[in-house]
């Protein structure tokens, strides 16, 4: 029993997000950084670069390489996770790199890499969405020119109901999970994955809900960045 009378196990409504806290510019050594808490997720994102791509043969003379690295700390899950990259984190790194690459003006920095490190310190479902959201804030903090501030959020299906932002139990027991990343200005989809089964109608409903959720999260991202940089406004 995951949903009863339209109220979920953690007391949320079907279209309600978990509490989110975003802070920009938390690391001194990184060019840009962000700390994000999303429900039980705790994520640190750091951006380094654009810097020289090494070894030289990986350089692209026409544009920068966006190299995101998603990593889960061994203590981030209940059962100790074996440290280092595995099949899952390699995949998430790849899809995250591609989502971020499509909004960055990579052609401005030929022969370089932009390294994005996403460290999951505490995990509770939806880490890839939280990771992309944090990475976007870190990239903006690093002053890297972007078409838009990407943002991600998941929708899913539990007990036959389409809901927003699955929690850990809902992700495990539910029927489907649909992480979506968008560029909020024109709703361009940057990442779309699905786990489980949805009918076509449910899929459309879940996608709309996820995009709605993304726009909510985008407001928080903007707030975090303005919080840090608006203080400079003197006039």
């Amino acid at each position: 029993m995951l949903i009863k009378d339209g109220i979920r196990m953690d007391g949320r409504k079907p279209d309600e997000l978990r509490p989110i806290k975003i802070e920009a510019g938390v690391l001194y050594r990184a060019d840009g950084s962000c700390y994000l808490e999303w429900g039980g997720n705790k994520i640190m994102a750091a951006v380094y670069g654009p810097r020289e791509a090494l070894p030289r043969h990986i350089q692209d003379p026409t544009k920068a390489i966006v190299n995101a690295r998603y990593n889960m700390a061994s203590f981030s899950v209940e059962e100790r996770k074996r440290p280092g990259p595995d099949r899952r984190s390699t995949e998430i790194s790849k899809v995250t790199s591609e989502a971020l690459e499509s909004v960055i003006f990579t052609e401005l920095f030929p022969r370089t890499t932009i390294d994005v490190c996403i460290e999951v310190l505490d995990a509770e479902a939806g880490t890839r969405c939280a990771g992309i959201t944090a990475a976007a804030v870190a990239l903006a903090d690093a002053g890297i020119p972007m078409r838009d501030l990407p943002v991600a959020c998941a929708a899913g299906k539990i007990d036959g109901t389409v809901v927003l932002d699955l929690s850990s139990e809902e992700d495990k027991e539910g029927e489907a999970d649909l992480p979506v990343a968008i560029a909020p200005r024109n709703e361009e989809i940057l990442l779309l994955q699905m786990d489980g089964h949805l009918t076509y109608k449910e899929f459309e409903e879940a996608l709309d809900l996820a995009i709605k959720g993304c726009k909510e999260v985008a407001k928080l991202q903007r707030k975090a960045l303005l919080n840090k940089y608006k203080t400079f406004e003197v006039e």
Binding site: A140, D148, L149, P184, R185, L226, K230, E233, E235
Partner: peptide, 9 residues
């Protein structure tokens, strides 16, 4: 003079 973020028109 207003503060803008990436993606703002």
């Amino acid at each position: 003079g207003s503060t803008v973020l990436p993606g703002d028109k």
